[in-house]
């Protein structure tokens, strides 16, 4: 009973907070409305007794919103981010796409014949998840990790205006590098 009530309350909170992302007029409010939505989802995963996945969802999403605030300053500049602004762009197309996706997913949940449960959940789901990721799926996970790290580095390199020639000079021999923000270990 209690978990039913908790599930529905969290579901409503997650959906409303998700909707608030597009209604509020400040980037800070939008970011943290999204965080609240994800915290709701993370707590629902806890209700499914997937403790590790639930807690990690909360951890990653809260951190991600803070990192978003960093990117907001790095790449958007201070002024637009600090002013009240609309959180929606290209409303007509976005609305069409989002309604289409919603109909597709909702139809999927209704039409697909749900499989019945085979077997029983293991006693320690966290351990089983870890064995699954680190055992037979290790290669996939390791490859995905490298690809994600490379994507992040490539994204920052493409977005940053400074190149290695700015840092190390035309012949790449200048030491220490000429950085606008000097590092702490004197490289």
């Amino acid at each position: 009973m209690v978990s039913h009530v908790a599930f529905w309350v969290l579901a409503v909170v997650a959906v409303l907070a998700g909707a608030a992302v597009f209604i509020v007029n400040s980037m800070a409010r939008a970011s943290y409305a999204l965080a609240v939505s994800f915290i709701g989802v993370g707590l629902q995963v806890l209700l499914l007794q997937q403790n590790y996945v639930g807690v990690v969802t909360i951890l990653m999403m809260v951190m991600e919103m803070a990192v978003m605030a960093v990117y907001m300053i790095m790449f958007m500049g201070m002024n637009p981010a600090l002013m009240p602004m609309s959180m929606v762009h290209d409303k007509r197309h976005a609305l069409a796409v989002s309604i289409g996706v919603f109909v597709l997913l909702a139809a999927g949940t209704l039409i697909v014949p749900w499989p019945t449960r085979r077997g029983t959940p293991p006693a320690d789901v966290t351990m089983t998840l870890g064995e699954e990721l680190m055992g037979p799926k290790m290669l996939v996970m390791a490859a995905v990790g490298v690809v994600m790290a490379a994507t992040i580095v490539a994204g920052v390199v493409l977005a940053a205006h400074q190149t290695r020639y700015d840092r190390f000079g035309d012949d790449l021999r200048r030491r220490p590098a000429d950085d606008p923000q000097p590092g702490g270990v004197g490289r």
Partner: peptide
């Protein structure tokens, strides 16, 4: 069971 991750979150 995942108290350490809880602290981290």
């Amino acid at each position: 069971d995942v108290g350490v991750v809880w602290f981290n979150a």
